[in-house]
Nucleic acid binder design. Structure first.
Length: 871
RNA sequence: GGGAGCAUAGCUCAGCUGGUUUAGAGCAUCUGCCUUACAAGCAGAGGGUCCGCGGUUCGAACCCGUGUGCUCCCA
């Protein structure tokens, strides 16, 4: 006895375990075509959220489908080490145990970090299993695995030798909380309500003259080393070459003139703080200005600031204003909205800071990567992201890859006491290099760079290093699986990751890392807000899976998510998924009821019609789905299957073949029904793996599994058969509508009279038609039937006789409405055909089509008019 | 400031190369049904200035221009 509804929890645990045991997800190179997907490695600190859910559902769909298409599908799981995020977690863990990071050594810290990683690092991968993701768990990778780590360092050394990596003191984005440099991509700009302070600086040689600047960061005044004006600006021409005095600290700074300054912003006079502003730094270089670094690495004011030493720069911003005012320097304050950079990982306000860091020069390495995407060596879905990619690649800046952290790949640069350095894989090799460079140093004196590499500097090797493409070059796995097939990722990491993977792929494998890139949308809440921890609007995914089932969650997230479009997540979509589960489950219950009630073949030809129709419909949809999947239109494919199963199979097919209450079913019909059902769940399997596998096994006792059942090539669908099925549906709906409108109760039977030129066609399906519209009898007539409800479908007319008194007026209104519609339609067609230029210019088949439309409309109008006469 | 994208039913979205489109789904709404698979359901219905304006074309939701509004990216 089957349960009332589909019980998802049991099926999920049972089948995932079964698939694993059977080893369906583990792949070894063979002579089949490979279909390879590498997971975008989630952050090792991560837990599953809606973004992962979408992303991994898509990957699972692609991988499962490829597997069922006979490809050797391999989906590689893993995580990245997430320097900043993990280090923050470890520091927090230590704090709870009363240990300060500063009190322990680097090695001790790393021991704790590994402890943390072993304990919490795999959570997200376990959660993916709950979603049904068919990953090859034996291949689970981590960006700090020993081989992987060595490859990362090797790449650093190699790029250094090629001259792509250099060390330089430049302005960088400084995260004061994590106390590390960030790359440009790790800074998130947000609009912030600020104040614009107008501050006047006294001119040095004339006690009565001032120059007024405007700033949102008054605390940086302490680091000012110039004031800059536009050379064209008449207001300040007399001040060129003079000096001003910095308020509160009395530093004497030059007034310089440069086109960089816009005359219409603020006062037209710009204070220049080379140590704390990107643009000011450029000016500083150009005019050889003094650089006064007023900030410590934790964001507090340094000795060089002279005032507020040791206080946080944001506090100082508030404190300095009254002092400026008291000293008579504050002219006015206005409200001002500006963009402020925040750290992606710690949300701290990022400070521009001058710092010695390691950089990758991107100019040369990016060239093949840009070309590959532009000339479709790599396909982006949707293609609109090509623009974004090109724009970034053409304006690419050097990549700051050093991070002032311990957790990660320690930079293989080694320093001698005299400050000279070499890049080498080990202390010993560094020592040898120093020797050949004639640097006098003992091996003990050599000091390794304290910093780690940006996490993305390791994950850009992911598509080949998960197959040890670099640590074990040319091995069988990398030869077989690389380049991978499809990368599924979020558009927000197109630069962080996608672009750089393509660069690394060409640089180290001499080949693209993947053929297609599918960009998912961003999952937002119902109100269109991005899901975030701080808003608390991201639902607990595991709770949702518990509540609705993994299949329903997968359905809900996929049903309205075309590639690259954001999706507004709404639980009602999950409900729809759950309802779909139940619909399928109930269809199963119905079919199982017939299993023991089979009878020898009956004479009824109606069933032949139904079986042929559904078979053709199935073939039609198979072809459609193939086409949609090739175009990566996954949600369209799912919608198509949803409608095939719910509407065509459940609402029409099953109703048509359903025997009367406790009546036997034709054995052939039963066999076919089971076969169709199997094909349906097979098509749906990649989207909803659990329920489909369950149904597959419920339908019949069997030893194989749906998970690896191979798709067969669809046969061509017969258009005539499809249109006959379509007509039958149309007739049934029209008759039901007529019954409804005339308030004939569902239980009241009717007598149906058909006026048609295709009597044989209707006779073949008479039983079905009668059952579907609750007709006690079906007769054929040459003339109109008096005192009946008239329904016209195409060229045929139907007369409904019933006990119910006919509302002739209502009927007439209906017919007139239809008549008007048809006449307007005819008019629009006639207008086209009456236009000589249309007939001349349009394609012949288009004209032919319009002629057919005209003829059909005329026929329908005739039918309706005749019906009206008989009322 | 520079660039990109989007605007279609109450909501979320399809609509591919301009012609079976006086525009389709799903959800929501309304009407009638507890019809022996399913009320988490069945049967049916209503609902549209395809953002405004102009142009190209025999023909425009679709192409071009322009305006408006929203979103994103870069600085």
């Amino acid at each position: 006895m089957l349960s009332k509804n589909f019980i998802h929890g049991e099926a999920e645990a049972l089948w995932y375990d079964h698939w694993l045991k059977k080893g369906y997800f583990s792949s070894k190179p063979d002579n089949r075509e490979a279909y390879t997907v590498v997971i975008p490695p989630p952050n090792v600190t991560g837990v599953l959220h809606m973004g992962h859910c979408l992303n991994n559902t898509i990957q699972d769909i692609l991988v499962r489908r490829a597997r069922m298409q006979g490809k050797n599908a391999c989906w590689v799981p893993g995580t990245d080490h997430a320097s900043i995020a993990t280090e923050a977690k470890v520091v927090a863990m230590l704090r709870e145990r009363g240990i300060a990071k500063s009190s322990i050594s680097r090695d001790e810290f790393l021991k704790y970090a590994w402890e943390w990683k072993e304990k919490y690092g795999g959570i997200i991968l376990q959660q993916l299993k709950k979603m049904g993701c068919g990953l090859d768990w034996d291949r689970t990778s981590f960006t700090m695995d020993p081989d992987y780590s060595r490859s990362v360092l090797q790449v650093f050394i190699d790029l250094y030798k090629k001259g792509y990596i250099y060390r330089g003191k430049r302005m960088i984005n400084w995260d004061v909380r994590a106390k590390t440099a960030l790359s440009d991509e790790e800074v998130i700009y947000k609009e912030v309500q600020s104040k614009l302070y107008h501050v006047q600086y006294k001119i040095d040689d004339d006690s009565n003259t001032y120059i007024t600047i405007a700033t949102v960061r008054p605390e940086t005044i302490l680091g000012d080393t110039a004031i800059c004006v536009n050379p064209q600006d008449e207001r300040y021409k007399h001040l060129h070459g003079k000096y001003a005095i910095v308020p509160l600290i009395g530093r004497r700074i030059p007034i310089i003139a440069d086109d960089y300054v816009t005359m219409d912003f603020g006062t037209g006079a710009l204070k220049v703080t080379p140590a704390h502003d990107m643009n000011d730094y450029q000016l500083g270089q150009k005019y050889k200005l003094e650089i006064v670094d007023t900030m410590n690495d934790d964001g507090t004011m340094s000795e060089a600031a002279q005032l507020f030493i040791g206080e946080d720069r944001l506090d100082v911003r508030k404190k300095i204003v009254p002092q400026l005012e008291a000293a008579g320097h504050l002219v006015k304050t206005e409200d001002y909205t500006n963009q402020v950079g925040f750290s992606e990982r710690t949300d701290a306000v990022v400070e521009p800071r001058l710092s010695l860091q390691w950089w990758v020069s991107m100019k040369n390495i990016s060239v093949p990567a840009l070309e590959a995407v532009m000339n479709e060596g790599i396909h982006f879905h949707p293609a609109k992201f090509k623009n974004l990619y090109r724009h970034w690649m053409e304006n690419i800046k050097d990549w700051c890859i050093s991070r002032q952290l311990w957790w990660g790949h320690r930079i293989p640069a080694w320093y001698a006491p005299d400050g000279s350095f070499v890049v080498a894989i080990s202390r010993e090799e560094a020592f040898e290099q120093f020797k050949s460079d004639h640097v006098k140093v003992s091996i003990e004196e050599i000091r390794q760079d304290d910093d780690c590499l940006d996490t993305w500097f390791s994950s850009w090797l992911w598509p080949f290093e998960v197959f040890k493409g670099l640590s074990n070059p040319g091995n069988a796995a990398v030869k077989y699986y690389y380049p991978t097939s499809t990368l599924v990722t979020a558009p927000e990491i197109i630069f962080f990751w996608v672009a750089r993977m393509i660069m690394a792929g060409y640089e180290y494998m001499d080949e693209k890392p993947f053929k297609d890139v599918y960009f998912t949308g961003i999952v937002r809440d119902k109100l269109g807000r991005k899901m975030s921890k701080s808003l608390g609007n991201s639902p607990d995914l595991l709770a949702l899976i518990d509540q609705y089932g993994a299949d329903a969650v997968r359905f809900g997230i996929m049903i309205a998510s075309p590639a690259g479009n954001d999706i507004l997540f709404d639980e009602s979509a999950l409900e729809q998924g759950r309802n779909f589960n139940n619909k399928i489950w109930n269809a199963l219950k119905l079919v199982k009821m017939w299993e023991g009630r089979q009878a020898q073949a009956t004479e009824d030809t109606a069933y032949n019609f139904v079986l042929t129709w559904f078979e053709n419909r199935l073939n039609q949809v198979k072809a459609e789905v193939n086409e949609l999947m090739t175009q990566f239109r996954l949600s369209e494919a799912l919608k198509t299957l949803y409608s095939l199963i719910w509407d065509d199979f459940c609402s029409w097919y099953l109703e048509w073949v359903k025997p009367g209450f406790e009546q036997p079913i034709d054995a052939v019909v039963y066999e076919k029904t089971v076969q169709y059902f199997e094909e349906l769940v097979q098509l749906l399997h990649p989207f909803m793996p659990f329920i489909t596998e369950e149904i597959y096994h419920q339908l019949k006792e069997r030893t194989d599994d749906l998970c690896v059942k191979q798709y067969s090539k669809p046969a061509d669908a017969d258009a005539l058969v499809l249109s006959e099925g379509q007509l039958l549906k149309q007739v049934i709906s029209a008759l039901r509508d007529a019954r409804n409108k005339n308030q004939v109760k569902p239980k009241d039977s009717i007598q149906l009279h058909i006026q048609t030129t295709n009597k044989a066609g209707y006779e073949a399906i008479e039983n079905i038609l009668a059952k579907q519209v609750n007709a006690a009898s079906v007769q054929y007539t040459a003339d109109a039937v008096a005192n009946s409800i008239v329904v016209a479908v195409e060229k045929d007319r139907f007369f409904i006789e019933s006990e119910k008194q006919i509302d002739a007026d209502a009927l007439k209104t209906e017919l007139l409405k239809d008549l008007e519609y048809q006449q307007k339609f005819l008019e629009s067609v006639a207008k086209k055909l009456g236009n000589e230029r249309f007939v001349q210019n349009a394609k012949p088949e288009v004209v032919e089509l319009e002629r057919k439309k005209q003829a059909d409309a005329l026929a329908r109008i005739k039918t309706i008019e005749e019906s009206l006469q008989h009322l």
